[in-house]
């Protein structure tokens, strides 16, 4: 392993300055559960690692009915699934935060880091896409916002330019009669990488019998997490039924463009997208109905 400088900025502006000074030779680190493994294994290299955990804005975890959830980019998973407001309002997010790694990993790993790592299999990304999350970015040229479904651009690649950092994610407050769920398929029961994953959110009408809208997002079936707009849109305005759910699952399957690798085959992954879309939709509907 080569020499690497390590810095711990205390403010967003200091962090941006440090990141900008090294360009693409700087790596941001939150929990480090991806970046340290990659550096050690030679899959990434860097001259400077910038620790984001001591910047207040990146540790913010707050909720209001008006602004929704602000999730600092370095907030570790355990804080998310122990937070009362998240438990009450975003069970679909808890699904992901509580299944990433084991207890030790959840004590360090952040959802912001999971997003920046931009793995197609990142478990927290589909639920945030399903929940209409937005990434709040700061860089040398100021602030900008990017919908999470547009954040990842390839395996391990994202929209961040040199010097830019992800400060936080914003997730709108849930509407009445809405529900969300994330499920992944792994061959074991825990501690594994998704062969396929599906995050869904649904908004039902007051009767709970009809879809107003839905958002569906897929993991591990393309170079980036997939926002399957066609699948979600197919449900809008329809009565809740097995047929509608089946149709949405077929549209999601059509949006899955996986590869064969040691974790699964194309056929298996497309099939699993169908299974998981149906299962998550049913779970999300149940949550929307208050179940």
């Amino acid at each position: 392993m080569e020499w690497i400088d390590f810095a711990t900025p205390k403010s967003v502006s200091e962090a941006v300055e440090m990141m900008a000074s090294k360009g693409d030779r700087a790596r941001a680190m939150a929990g480090g559960t991806d970046v340290l493994v990659q550096l050690r294994g030679g899959r990434r290299s860097a001259d400077l690692v910038v620790d984001m955990k001591e910047i207040p804005e990146l540790n913010e975890l707050s909720y209001s009915a008006q602004n929704g959830l602000t999730l600092g980019a370095a907030v570790p998973c355990y804080r998310i699934y122990q937070d009362k407001a998240v438990i009450d309002n975003y069970p679909g997010l808890i699904d992901a935060a509580s299944l990433i790694g084991g207890i030790q990993i959840q004590g360090r790993a952040s959802i912001g880091g999971n997003l920046c790592n931009a793995a197609p299999s990142g478990d927290s990304i589909p639920p945030i896409i399903a929940l209409s999350g937005v990434a709040n970015i700061t860089g040398p040229n100021g602030n900008r916002q990017v919908p999470v479904e547009d954040f990842c651009t390839g395996p391990g690649q994202n929209v961040l330019q040199n010097g830019e950092i992800l400060v936080s994610l914003t997730i709108p407050a849930p509407q009445p009669h809405s529900g969300a769920n994330y499920l992944r398929f792994i061959p074991r029961n825990e501690m594994d990488i998704a062969v396929a994953g599906v995050g869904t959110s649904v908004l039902l009408d007051a009767s709970g019998q009809n879809f107003v809208s839905a958002r569906i997002s897929l993991a591990s079936v393309a170079p980036t997490p997939v926002f399957s707009q066609a699948a979600g849109d197919s449900l809008a305005g329809k009565a809740v039924s097995d047929e509608a759910i089946q149709e949405a699952s077929e549209k999601a399957m059509a949006d899955a463009k996986p590869i064969n690798d040691m974790r699964g085959t194309v056929r298996q992954r497309v099939h699993l997208v169908g299974v998981l879309t149906r299962r998550t939709l049913n779970n999300a509907i149940q949550r929307a109905r208050g179940g």
Partner: peptide, 16 residues
Amino acid sequence: MMNSSFLDYRMPTSLD
């Protein structure tokens, strides 16, 4: 070998 780590060489854990 494409799975030369305990992540992808899937031994059972206590949870399995």
